[in-house]
């Protein structure tokens, strides 16, 4: 089937089998490799993308279902080549990762949180990433990264806005 996807503010027409997940479509058809397969059954969260600004598991959505939504992947967050968004930079500052496999999804989950809540408590941050499993860090430096990003964005009056 043909489907037109709006990804990172660009339209992409792709031909997919109905059974192709949005995750596989992003990776295999569009070479947007920042979304990762971890479990393919909706538990680990490594495949998280934003659909109209909300964090969603791209392994639980078929590409044919995804037309008409504003889809944001990690590739859409960098302001420019080699440049980091405030959240990405905060993850670097606290070293909120190790192997990097869950990281794009974590950052998108953080993005979804901070676009609704500019001053999250620790519990709110923990809740917002609780559907994203990280096996490396024990989460502490991830939570710190999100808190730091929130603080910096408040200080600079940066809004994540709707992607």
């Amino acid at each position: 089937m043909k489907v037109e996807l709006d990804i990172n503010n660009e339209k992409h027409a792709v031909e997919v089998e109905p059974r192709m997940s949005l995750l596989d479509c992003l990776r295999d058809k569009l070479l947007l490799n920042g979304a990762h397969a971890g479990c393919e059954h909706g538990v680990c969260g490594a495949c998280t993308v934003l659909i109209d600004g909300a964090a969603v598991r791209s392994c639980l959505m078929f590409a044919v279902q995804a037309d008409g939504y504003a889809i944001t992947t990690i590739e859409g967050l960098s302001p420019g080549p080699g440049e980091l968004s405030p959240i990405q930079d905060a993850f670097c500052e606290t070293h909120g990762m190790q192997c990097g496999y869950c990281t794009p999804a974590m950052i998108l989950a953080a993005h979804a949180l901070l676009s609704k809540n500019s001053q999250p408590t620790r519990d709110e941050i923990v809740e917002a990433i609780s559907g994203n499993i990280c096996r490396c860090t024990g989460y502490a430096q991830i939570v710190e990264a999100i808190a730091l990003a929130a603080e910096r964005m408040r200080g600079q009056n940066i809004k994540t806005g709707q992607p």
Binding site: A109, E127, G131
Partner: peptide, 12 residues
């Protein structure tokens, strides 16, 4: 409601 799945599954 907050006990239903995760934030990301409640979005869909």
């Amino acid at each position: 409601m907050p006990h239903v799945g995760h934030t990301a599954t409640r979005a869909r």
